[in-house]
Design a protein around this nucleic acid. Structure first.
Lengths: 115, 115
DNA sequence: TCACGTTATGTTTATATGAATATAACGTGA
DNA sequence: TCACGTTATATTCATATAAACATAACGTGA
Protein backbone atom coordinates (compact mmCIF):
# COMPACT_ATOMS: atom_id res chain seq x y z
CA UNK A 1 0.00 0.00 0.00
CA UNK A 2 1.11 3.54 -0.65
CA UNK A 3 0.00 6.83 0.73
CA UNK A 4 1.09 10.40 1.15
CA UNK A 5 1.20 11.89 4.58
CA UNK A 6 1.48 15.58 5.09
CA UNK A 7 2.96 16.11 8.50
CA UNK A 8 2.76 19.57 9.98
CA UNK A 9 5.16 20.01 12.84
CA UNK A 10 5.33 23.04 15.09
CA UNK A 11 8.92 23.24 16.26
CA UNK A 12 10.00 25.39 19.20
CA UNK A 13 13.35 25.13 20.97
CA UNK A 14 14.15 21.88 19.18
CA UNK A 15 10.97 20.39 20.61
CA UNK A 16 7.93 19.52 18.56
CA UNK A 17 5.32 21.64 20.29
CA UNK A 18 2.53 20.24 18.14
CA UNK A 19 2.29 17.46 15.59
CA UNK A 20 -0.01 14.62 14.55
CA UNK A 21 0.78 12.47 17.59
CA UNK A 22 0.27 15.23 20.13
CA UNK A 23 -2.93 16.33 18.45
CA UNK A 24 -4.28 12.79 18.70
CA UNK A 25 -3.26 12.67 22.35
CA UNK A 26 -5.05 15.93 23.08
CA UNK A 27 -8.23 14.53 21.58
CA UNK A 28 -7.93 11.35 23.61
CA UNK A 29 -7.41 13.30 26.84
CA UNK A 30 -10.38 15.50 26.06
CA UNK A 31 -12.48 12.40 25.52
CA UNK A 32 -11.24 10.32 28.45
CA UNK A 33 -10.67 12.97 31.09
CA UNK A 34 -7.26 11.73 32.17
CA UNK A 35 -3.77 11.26 30.83
CA UNK A 36 -3.62 7.65 31.94
CA UNK A 37 -6.91 6.65 30.29
CA UNK A 38 -5.93 8.49 27.13
CA UNK A 39 -2.56 6.74 27.05
CA UNK A 40 -4.21 3.38 27.58
CA UNK A 41 -6.66 3.98 24.73
CA UNK A 42 -3.77 4.83 22.44
CA UNK A 43 -1.63 1.88 23.56
CA UNK A 44 0.95 4.35 24.80
CA UNK A 45 2.78 4.27 28.11
CA UNK A 46 1.60 6.77 30.71
CA UNK A 47 5.13 8.09 30.99
CA UNK A 48 5.34 8.87 27.33
CA UNK A 49 1.95 10.57 27.33
CA UNK A 50 2.92 12.63 30.36
CA UNK A 51 6.19 13.67 28.73
CA UNK A 52 4.35 14.81 25.61
CA UNK A 53 1.89 16.80 27.72
CA UNK A 54 4.80 18.37 29.57
CA UNK A 55 6.46 19.46 26.32
CA UNK A 56 3.22 21.00 25.09
CA UNK A 57 2.61 22.90 28.32
CA UNK A 58 6.18 24.21 28.34
CA UNK A 59 6.10 25.28 24.70
CA UNK A 60 3.05 27.51 24.61
CA UNK A 61 2.30 30.83 26.26
CA UNK A 62 -0.58 29.32 28.20
CA UNK A 63 -1.26 25.82 29.49
CA UNK A 64 -2.68 23.35 26.99
CA UNK A 65 -3.70 20.78 29.56
CA UNK A 66 -4.81 21.32 33.14
CA UNK A 67 -4.12 18.46 35.53
CA UNK A 68 -5.44 17.65 38.99
CA UNK A 69 -3.81 15.24 41.41
CA UNK A 70 -5.69 13.36 44.12
CA UNK A 71 -9.34 13.84 44.87
CA UNK A 72 -12.49 11.95 44.10
CA UNK A 73 -11.31 9.75 41.28
CA UNK A 74 -7.61 10.15 41.87
CA UNK A 75 -7.30 13.21 39.73
CA UNK A 76 -7.53 13.83 36.01
CA UNK A 77 -6.68 16.09 33.15
CA UNK A 78 -8.53 18.20 30.66
CA UNK A 79 -7.68 20.27 27.64
CA UNK A 80 -7.90 23.97 28.42
CA UNK A 81 -9.85 26.46 26.34
CA UNK A 82 -6.52 27.67 24.98
CA UNK A 83 -5.55 24.09 24.20
CA UNK A 84 -8.75 23.55 22.27
CA UNK A 85 -7.98 26.62 20.19
CA UNK A 86 -4.50 25.34 19.38
CA UNK A 87 -5.90 21.94 18.48
CA UNK A 88 -8.59 23.38 16.22
CA UNK A 89 -6.09 25.63 14.49
CA UNK A 90 -3.73 22.72 13.94
CA UNK A 91 -6.43 20.49 12.50
CA UNK A 92 -7.55 23.30 10.23
CA UNK A 93 -4.02 23.69 8.91
CA UNK A 94 -3.77 19.95 8.30
CA UNK A 95 -7.02 19.88 6.36
CA UNK A 96 -6.26 22.98 4.32
CA UNK A 97 -2.76 21.79 3.39
CA UNK A 98 -4.06 18.40 2.33
CA UNK A 99 -6.80 19.91 0.24
CA UNK A 100 -4.43 22.34 -1.46
CA UNK A 101 -2.20 19.60 -2.85
CA UNK A 102 -4.71 16.81 -3.31
CA UNK A 103 -4.32 16.57 -7.06
CA UNK A 104 -0.55 16.77 -7.05
CA UNK A 105 -0.17 14.09 -4.40
CA UNK A 106 -2.37 11.70 -6.34
CA UNK A 107 -0.21 12.24 -9.41
CA UNK A 108 2.91 11.47 -7.38
CA UNK A 109 1.36 8.33 -5.93
CA UNK A 110 0.69 7.00 -9.40
CA UNK A 111 4.42 6.94 -9.99
CA UNK A 112 4.98 4.54 -7.12
CA UNK A 113 5.50 0.88 -7.80
CA UNK A 114 2.55 -0.43 -5.78
CA UNK A 115 -0.10 2.00 -6.80
CA UNK B 1 13.65 30.10 17.85
CA UNK B 2 10.39 28.72 16.65
CA UNK B 3 9.19 27.64 13.27
CA UNK B 4 6.63 25.53 11.53
CA UNK B 5 7.75 22.85 9.22
CA UNK B 6 5.38 21.19 6.84
CA UNK B 7 6.81 17.82 6.05
CA UNK B 8 5.37 15.95 3.08
CA UNK B 9 6.27 12.29 3.16
CA UNK B 10 5.56 9.85 0.37
CA UNK B 11 5.16 6.49 2.07
CA UNK B 12 5.26 3.21 0.13
CA UNK B 13 5.68 -0.24 1.69
CA UNK B 14 6.58 1.28 5.07
CA UNK B 15 9.43 3.11 3.38
CA UNK B 16 9.56 6.83 2.83
CA UNK B 17 9.92 6.97 -0.92
CA UNK B 18 10.30 10.74 -0.90
CA UNK B 19 10.67 13.37 1.80
CA UNK B 20 12.64 16.54 2.57
CA UNK B 21 15.91 14.69 3.19
CA UNK B 22 15.76 12.60 0.03
CA UNK B 23 14.78 15.63 -2.04
CA UNK B 24 17.83 17.49 -0.75
CA UNK B 25 19.99 14.49 -1.56
CA UNK B 26 18.66 14.32 -5.10
CA UNK B 27 19.56 17.96 -5.64
CA UNK B 28 23.05 17.41 -4.26
CA UNK B 29 23.63 14.39 -6.52
CA UNK B 30 22.39 16.34 -9.51
CA UNK B 31 24.82 19.11 -8.67
CA UNK B 32 27.86 16.99 -7.79
CA UNK B 33 27.53 14.10 -10.22
CA UNK B 34 28.16 11.37 -7.67
CA UNK B 35 26.64 9.88 -4.56
CA UNK B 36 29.87 10.16 -2.62
CA UNK B 37 30.43 13.84 -3.41
CA UNK B 38 26.80 14.59 -2.62
CA UNK B 39 27.05 12.78 0.71
CA UNK B 40 30.23 14.63 1.57
CA UNK B 41 28.65 18.00 0.82
CA UNK B 42 25.73 17.15 3.09
CA UNK B 43 27.95 15.79 5.87
CA UNK B 44 26.29 12.44 5.43
CA UNK B 45 28.00 9.06 5.26
CA UNK B 46 28.24 7.49 1.82
CA UNK B 47 26.50 4.38 3.14
CA UNK B 48 23.51 6.34 4.30
CA UNK B 49 23.25 8.25 1.04
CA UNK B 50 23.50 5.03 -0.92
CA UNK B 51 20.79 3.40 1.20
CA UNK B 52 18.48 6.36 0.59
CA UNK B 53 19.12 6.17 -3.15
CA UNK B 54 18.39 2.46 -3.06
CA UNK B 55 15.05 3.02 -1.33
CA UNK B 56 14.07 5.63 -3.89
CA UNK B 57 14.98 3.46 -6.85
CA UNK B 58 13.08 0.51 -5.40
CA UNK B 59 9.96 2.55 -4.61
CA UNK B 60 9.19 4.12 -7.97
CA UNK B 61 8.13 2.61 -11.25
CA UNK B 62 11.25 3.88 -12.95
CA UNK B 63 14.76 4.59 -11.70
CA UNK B 64 15.29 7.92 -9.97
CA UNK B 65 19.06 7.78 -10.08
CA UNK B 66 21.32 6.14 -12.64
CA UNK B 67 24.69 5.00 -11.37
CA UNK B 68 27.87 3.96 -13.12
CA UNK B 69 30.68 2.00 -11.53
CA UNK B 70 34.30 2.14 -12.65
CA UNK B 71 35.51 4.09 -15.62
CA UNK B 72 37.23 7.39 -16.13
CA UNK B 73 36.61 9.03 -12.78
CA UNK B 74 35.65 5.92 -10.89
CA UNK B 75 32.02 6.14 -11.76
CA UNK B 76 29.24 8.49 -10.80
CA UNK B 77 25.53 9.03 -10.48
CA UNK B 78 22.96 11.27 -12.01
CA UNK B 79 19.30 11.98 -11.51
CA UNK B 80 17.23 10.55 -14.33
CA UNK B 81 14.66 12.51 -16.30
CA UNK B 82 12.00 10.64 -14.36
CA UNK B 83 13.75 11.53 -11.11
CA UNK B 84 13.79 15.19 -12.02
CA UNK B 85 10.05 15.05 -12.62
CA UNK B 86 9.45 13.46 -9.21
CA UNK B 87 11.66 16.04 -7.56
CA UNK B 88 9.93 18.96 -9.26
CA UNK B 89 6.51 17.61 -8.36
CA UNK B 90 7.57 17.14 -4.76
CA UNK B 91 8.97 20.67 -4.46
CA UNK B 92 5.81 22.04 -6.02
CA UNK B 93 3.68 20.27 -3.44
CA UNK B 94 5.85 21.59 -0.63
CA UNK B 95 5.56 25.16 -1.87
CA UNK B 96 1.84 24.98 -2.50
CA UNK B 97 1.10 23.46 0.90
CA UNK B 98 3.17 26.09 2.68
CA UNK B 99 1.52 28.90 0.80
CA UNK B 100 -1.96 27.58 1.49
CA UNK B 101 -1.56 27.72 5.27
CA UNK B 102 0.84 30.64 5.61
CA UNK B 103 -1.51 32.83 7.60
CA UNK B 104 -2.68 30.07 9.92
CA UNK B 105 0.83 28.92 10.74
CA UNK B 106 1.90 32.44 11.64
CA UNK B 107 -1.07 32.69 14.00
CA UNK B 108 -0.07 29.42 15.63
CA UNK B 109 3.53 30.53 16.00
CA UNK B 110 2.44 33.62 17.89
CA UNK B 111 1.06 31.36 20.59
CA UNK B 112 4.46 29.83 21.25
CA UNK B 113 6.49 31.01 24.20
CA UNK B 114 9.55 32.18 22.27
CA UNK B 115 7.92 33.98 19.41
C1' DT C 1 49.43 -4.04 -15.35
C1' DC C 2 48.48 -0.77 -11.97
C1' DA C 3 46.41 3.31 -9.56
C1' DC C 4 42.35 5.81 -8.95
C1' DG C 5 37.70 7.19 -7.43
C1' DT C 6 33.44 5.42 -7.31
C1' DT C 7 29.61 2.07 -6.52
C1' DA C 8 28.03 -1.65 -3.71
C1' DT C 9 27.70 -4.12 0.53
C1' DG C 10 28.48 -5.99 5.20
C1' DT C 11 29.68 -5.49 10.03
C1' DT C 12 30.36 -3.25 14.22
C1' DT C 13 29.73 0.55 17.33
C1' DA C 14 27.34 4.46 19.26
C1' DT C 15 23.33 7.13 20.05
C1' DA C 16 18.56 8.25 20.39
C1' DT C 17 14.07 6.76 21.27
C1' DG C 18 10.51 4.35 23.39
C1' DA C 19 8.98 0.60 26.65
C1' DA C 20 8.88 -1.28 31.18
C1' DT C 21 9.13 -0.98 35.90
C1' DA C 22 9.04 1.27 40.29
C1' DT C 23 7.62 4.63 43.66
C1' DA C 24 6.17 8.88 46.00
C1' DA C 25 2.53 12.30 46.69
C1' DC C 26 -1.99 13.87 46.40
C1' DG C 27 -7.03 14.57 47.83
C1' DT C 28 -11.56 12.78 48.26
C1' DG C 29 -14.87 9.38 50.08
C1' DA C 30 -15.84 5.45 52.71
C1' DT D 1 -7.51 6.43 59.00
C1' DC D 2 -7.31 3.93 54.95
C1' DA D 3 -8.05 2.57 50.01
C1' DC D 4 -8.23 4.24 45.51
C1' DG D 5 -6.88 6.10 40.95
C1' DT D 6 -4.30 9.55 39.26
C1' DT D 7 -0.35 12.77 38.57
C1' DA D 8 4.58 13.20 38.76
C1' DT D 9 9.14 11.45 38.36
C1' DA D 10 13.27 8.43 38.12
C1' DT D 11 15.63 4.41 36.52
C1' DT D 12 16.55 0.44 33.84
C1' DC D 13 15.98 -2.22 29.67
C1' DA D 14 15.04 -2.98 24.79
C1' DT D 15 14.82 -1.48 20.21
C1' DA D 16 15.49 1.38 16.26
C1' DT D 17 18.33 4.52 13.97
C1' DA D 18 22.45 6.47 12.45
C1' DA D 19 27.56 6.64 12.40
C1' DA D 20 32.03 4.42 11.61
C1' DC D 21 34.75 1.28 9.60
C1' DA D 22 36.09 -2.15 6.31
C1' DT D 23 36.36 -4.25 1.79
C1' DA D 24 35.28 -6.06 -2.81
C1' DA D 25 34.36 -4.98 -7.66
C1' DC D 26 34.37 -2.11 -11.48
C1' DG D 27 36.30 0.35 -15.78
C1' DT D 28 39.14 3.82 -17.69
C1' DG D 29 43.70 5.99 -18.43
C1' DA D 30 48.43 6.18 -17.57
Amino acid sequence: MSSIKIKIQLVANDNIAMGPGKADLLEAIQQKGSISAAALSMEMSYKRAWDLVSIMNKSFKQAIIATAVGGDKGGGAQVTEFGLQILAQYRAIEAKANLAVEGETKALMRMLIDC
